[in-house]
Lab assay of single mutants.
Amino acid sequence: QVASGNGDRDPLPPGWEIKIDPQTGWPFFVDHNSRTTTWNDPRVPSEGP
């Protein structure tokens, strides 16, 4: 069983990049398509309500 969020081996969607926040050391994700950033890994399906 693979733990949720453990998709580091999967490629990011086109136009996405991983960067590290220098203050926290946490990775965040840059979507160059929409010029936005998020803490949520785009490779992990979001949980519904």
Rank of each mutant, 00 (worst) to 15 (best):
P14Y: 08
K19G: 05
D8G: 12
V2F: 12
R9G: 07
R9H: 06
D8V: 09
S46C: 10
P49Q: 15
A3P: 05
T37H: 02
D31R: 04
I18L: 06
G5A: 15
P45E: 01
S46H: 06
L12E: 10
T24M: 11
P11N: 10
V30H: 10
D41K: 11
N40T: 06
S34R: 07
G48D: 13
R43I: 04
W39A: 07
I20M: 12
D8Q: 11
D41A: 02
P45H: 03
S46K: 10
Q23G: 12
G25T: 11
G25Q: 14
G5F: 15
P11S: 14
D41Q: 03
P27M: 14
T37A: 03
S34W: 00
D31F: 00
D31N: 02
I20F: 08
I20W: 12
S46W: 05
D31M: 00
P11I: 15
D21I: 01
G48V: 10
D31Q: 07
E47V: 02
I20N: 09
R43G: 08
D21A: 09
G25K: 15
T36M: 07
P42C: 10
R35E: 06
P14G: 01
L12Y: 05
G48E: 11
P22W: 07
T24L: 04
Q23S: 08
Q1M: 15
E17T: 04
I20C: 11
N6D: 11
R35Q: 14
P13S: 00
I20D: 06
D10A: 04
V44C: 11
I20L: 13
A3H: 10
V30S: 01
T36G: 03
L12I: 08
G25N: 15
R9P: 08
D31T: 03
W26E: 15
W39D: 04
P11H: 10
F29A: 00
W39R: 08
R35V: 02
W16D: 03
P45S: 12
D31P: 03
W39P: 02
W16Y: 07
P49G: 11
P22K: 11
P14M: 03
K19Q: 02
N33G: 05
G7R: 15
H32Q: 00
N33P: 06
T36R: 09
D10H: 02
I20T: 07
P13L: 01
E47F: 10
T24A: 12
G7E: 15
F29H: 03
R9F: 01
N33A: 07
P49A: 09
N40Y: 13
P42S: 08
R43Y: 01
G25L: 09
D21T: 04
N33Q: 06
V30T: 00
R9K: 12
N40Q: 09
E47C: 04
S46I: 13
P27G: 11
N6S: 13
N40P: 07
A3V: 13
T24G: 12
T24H: 05
R9T: 09
S46G: 11
D10N: 12
P45L: 10
D31E: 00
A3W: 01
S4L: 12
R43E: 03
V44D: 10
N40L: 09
R43N: 08
H32F: 00
I20R: 10
L12D: 01
P14Q: 09
Q23I: 05
P11L: 10
P27S: 15
W16H: 07
P22D: 03
W26A: 15
R35K: 11
E47W: 06
R9M: 07
E17A: 03
A3F: 11
P49D: 14
P22G: 13
D8E: 10
L12N: 02
W26S: 15
S4H: 14
D8N: 12
I18R: 13
D31V: 01
Q1R: 14
V44M: 13
D41H: 08
W16I: 03
V2Y: 13
V44L: 14
G7Q: 15
G15Y: 10
G7T: 15
G25Y: 08
H32E: 01
S4G: 03
E17D: 05
D10S: 12
W39C: 03
D10I: 04
K19V: 08
P11Q: 13
L12M: 11
V30A: 04
E47S: 11
V30C: 08
P11C: 14
F28D: 04
R43A: 06
R35S: 07
T37E: 04
W26V: 15
G15I: 02
P49S: 10
S46P: 04
E17Y: 01
F29M: 02
P45T: 06
I20A: 11
E17I: 00
P14C: 05
T37Y: 10
P13T: 04
N40I: 15
V30I: 10
Q1F: 03
P27I: 14
D31G: 03
K19H: 02
A3M: 09
W39N: 09
S4R: 08
G5L: 15
S34T: 13
W16C: 02
T36E: 05
R43H: 03
R9V: 09
G7W: 13
W16L: 04
R43W: 00
P27A: 14
